[in-house]
Structure formats: structure tokens, C-alpha cells
């Protein structure tokens, strides 16, 4: 029989199966290198601590910076680290696109019946970065207990919104970086400016920034929405000029903007790769 159909996707097989299968294999592979996994986890943890130490050293010299004391900054730091590290666990490797392009792996993704971005995102998961999420969780927990907070439903809602949509914003930065790297040869340093710069910026009290920085990291790459503005709402503090604290409630809008820009950049990047202009 020559007319036989190829083995098409069985409707009964879930559409998430391809991704789950790849991810499960990645996790198994990481667990099988126990020694290096352990030391990677430790260094991710230390990286989180050192970043905290940088903030702490500054507050060792002054009591209050940009309207926040160390306890308040600890909350900003914690929220920012949870969001950024979670994004890094899930989509951080999109930032390594130049290596993927060099190895020709992207052409292989074209041969599989899933969207390219979904394949790249689910091609790996950086479990060791979970250690840094742990640092963030510890800082946020300590900050929430040592600060005087008037707990209400709004406080809880703000924390949840901050964690969920903050992660979306950070993930969008990684995807934007990936999309730009289709155009930039050895461009990972340039995109590090807003990916890792964004991570650093979001741990700072944005009140210390001059206007241009507020525009760049407040709105263009809206990382102040991830931790600083929510922390102001949670601690019931006023915001600096240009960044009033009520803006925090627009975090989902900021996330939408970041995600939309990320997807558009990615699409442009893929079109550039295929040579369709753009």
C-alpha cells in the first residue's frame, strides 16, 4: 500500500507532551551529574548572597537611601530576586541563543512540529538557579516579618501580583535579548545591559535614579514594577517623582507591554534569520 498516511500526531496525545518530555529529560540529565550540580547550586546561592552583600555594604554606610532603610530594601531585593531567578530557571537559556545559532540547533527546531520559541524555552531548565530563588524567598520572608506592614487583602494581592507578573517581565527581557541576538553578532554583552542590568536595577530604590534611568528601567524595560513599586505599596510608602506608588497596580499592564515587545522582537529576529526582511 503506497498511499499510507504518515504517523500523524495522535489526537489523544496531549499538546504539552513534547515539552514535558524534553524537560523531564533535561532534569534527569542535571540530576545525574550530582557533584557538579551541587557545586553549581552552591555558587548560585553564593551569587545571591554576594548580591545581597553589595546592598548591605552600602547600608552599612548610610541609614536611609532613596527613602528606604535596609529592612525596606530587603523586601525590594527579595521580591526582585524571586522573580528574576524564577525567570532565569525557566527561560534564562534563551539568552544563549548565539550558541544555539552557531551549533545549528535552531535549524533542528524547524524540523519539529512545535513553535520555535516554545521549543527554545522548553529546551532546558536551569534547576541550580533555584538556589537563588531560595535567597530571594528568605529575604522577602524576613523583610515581611521585620517591617511594619498593615496586612490587608490588598497587601497579599500586591505580593502575588508582584511575584507572578514580575516573573513575566523578567522572562520577557530574556526573550527580547534572544530576539535581538538574531541581529547582533556576539551581542550577548549588549543585551546583558538590560537583562542583568535590569536585574540589578530592580533591586535598587529607584528614587536615587536620574530621569533617564527612570525612563529606561521604569518604563522601557519596566523592572521597577517588579519589586520597587510593589514594595512601596506593601510598606505604604510614597514614590519619587515620575514613579508614584499607585503605579504598582498597573504591573499587569507593564507585563503585557514587556511580553508584547518580547514576542515582537522574537518574531522580527526569526524573520531576519529566515531572510524575510525585518
Amino acid at each position: 500500500m503506497v498511499d499510507q498516511l504518515p504517523a500523524h500526531a495522535e489526537p489523544g496525545i496531549g499538546r504539552w507532551t513534547p515539552y514535558r518530555s524534553v524537560l523531564a529529560a533535561r532534569i534527569r540529565a542535571q540530576r545525574s551529574y550530582r557533584a557538579s550540580f551541587a557545586i553549581d547550586t552552591v555558587s548560585a546561592f553564593v551569587a545571591g548572597l554576594v548580591e545581597l552583600a553589595e546592598v548591605w555594604v552600602i547600608f552599612h554606610n548610610v541609614q536611609v537611601l532613596g527613602g528606604l532603610d535596609f529592612r525596606a530594601v530587603l523586601l525590594v531585593f527579595g521580591l526582585a530576586n524571586i522573580g528574576f531567578s524564577t525567570a532565569e530557571v525557566m527561560v534564562g537559556h534563551v539568552d544563549t541563543l548565539p550558541a544555539v545559532l552557531r551549533a545549528g540547533t535552531l535549524d533542528i527546531y524547524y524540523l519539529r512540529p512545535q513553535p520555535l520559541l516554545a521549543q527554545v524555552v522548553t529546551s532546558d531548565v536551569q534547576l541550580r538557579r533555584l538556589a537563588r530563588v531560595g535567597v530571594g524567598v528568605a529575604c522577602a520572608a524576613i523583610a515581611l516579618s521585620v517591617n511594619h506592614i498593615h496586612w490587608s487583602q490588598a497587601t497579599v494581592a500586591m505580593i502575588v501580583i508582584s511575584l507572578v507578573f514580575g516573573t513575566v517581565i523578567y522572562s520577557s527581557l530574556f526573550v527580547t535579548a534572544g530576539g535581538l541576538q538574531f541581529f547582533l553578532i556576539s551581542g550577548s554583552e549588549a543585551t546583558a545591559a538590560f537583562v542583568y542590568g535590569g536585574s540589578t536595577a530592580s533591586t535598587q530604590p529607584a528614587a536615587v535614579w536620574p530621569g533617564p534611568l527612570k525612563i529606561i528601567f521604569g518604563f522601557l524595560f519596566p523592572v521597577t514594577f517588579c519589586a520597587y513599586l510593589p514594595a512601596l505599596v506593601i510598606l505604604d510608602l510614597p514614590g519619587p517623582p515620575m514613579l508614584p506608588s499607585w503605579l504598582a497596580w498597573f504591573l499587569p499592564v507593564a507585563a503585557l507591554w514587556a511580553a508584547g515587545a518580547a514576542l515582537a522582537t522574537w518574531r522580527l529576529g526569526v524573520r531576519h534569520y529566515q531572510g524575510g526582511g525585518g
Partner: peptide, 17 residues
């Protein structure tokens, strides 16, 4: 060029703090 962009961005963040 990329390195300069990154170094400068971090420079501004560091300077602000």
C-alpha cells in the same frame, strides 16, 4: 560595542546608588 553598552549601563546604576 556591546561590552561598552553594558559597562556604561551598569556604570549609571552604580553611580546612582
Amino acid at each position: 560595542a556591546g561590552g561598552l553598552i553594558a559597562n556604561t549601563t551598569f556604570g549609571f546604576l552604580k553611580a546612582a546608588m
